[in-house]
Amino acid sequence: MSTIEIIEAGPYTSIQDRGRFGEQRYGLGPAGAMDRLSLGIANVLVGQAPGDAAIEIGPLPMTFRVTEGVVRIAVAGAVRGMTSDGRALSGHETILLNEGDRVQMRAASQGVFTYLAFEGGIRAEPVLGSLSVHARAGIGCPYPRALQPGDRITVGGASTRETERLLPPLAETHGPLRVVLGPQDEHFTPAAIAAFLAADWTISSTSDRMGFRLEGPKLEHAKGFNIISDGIAFGAIQVPGSGQPLVLMADRGTTGGYPKIAVVISADLPRLAQMPVGSKIRFAAVSVAVAQLEARAMAVTLAGLKDQVREIGGGELSSAFLLGANLAGGAVDALE
């Protein structure tokens, strides 16, 4: 076992895994990684299961130091400059760090959330089946809050393998974010549904792990904006009285009393999660059947990642070259 210490961390940096399920009936939301695809890539590189816990690093800089033992890390998701004592590091490949090594990660230059996974995983006792931090609920392991300087995290030690590994980039997805209309699309006028699907929406600066607020045309309710509170899915788009939509993300409340016009399909949630404040997005409606085909395709991709991992041999190019430093997808906007 090894230990790392957080030297510097921005406000949205926390330990996240696939999420905590089973307690939503008591109001405890699942939390979990905002971008489950990037979490999976980082984990699989270091030999962990795709949904295992990693450090989710928000858009601001983060620095940590190996305080005990040798660790092997992998990084995926939002692109940012990374160095260790002057040595430039790359995402999408495993990196061996020795005791005392310090890794500096700059602010994200593309995307929002970067995932830092460790060989042997993060060692902590799960609460209700998960390590995921839900800061508002005061739950998560080993710290029930966002990470702070001085925090120490126990991780599995690095194996003695000689070579490092890389994962080729996944194909990028472009175009509008796909949604399934409903469950309360009938609470909106036909004109509001049309405007919702036609507008260029801007992600507001008040967005966080709870939800992404969107700015655009005011959407009109057909039957008022109160419903009898019901359950809320990851990616549900609720429209309160202001007529400005809110996409509910990983730290959402479990139930709510505003009508939900649509839900972002799960295969497009990783792309949405990586869109910084100010990004322009557009929505396109698809059927549940299409959304489920895409969800299954994403599950196949995640399950197949481990077969894509390659050894970095003597003559093989490093992933930094292969990727051109573009890890999270170049699309800052999701329009046509």
């Binding site: 307690e23 009898i228 359950g231 809320i232 059947a289 959304a291 489920q292």
Partner: peptide, 23 residues
Amino acid sequence: VIETIPTYRSLFVVYDPVVADYA
């Protein structure tokens, strides 16, 4: 089915689309 949320007048059902299809 992964979990459910009983609410006033509806049951919210969370499921894995890899295992179960909507229809």
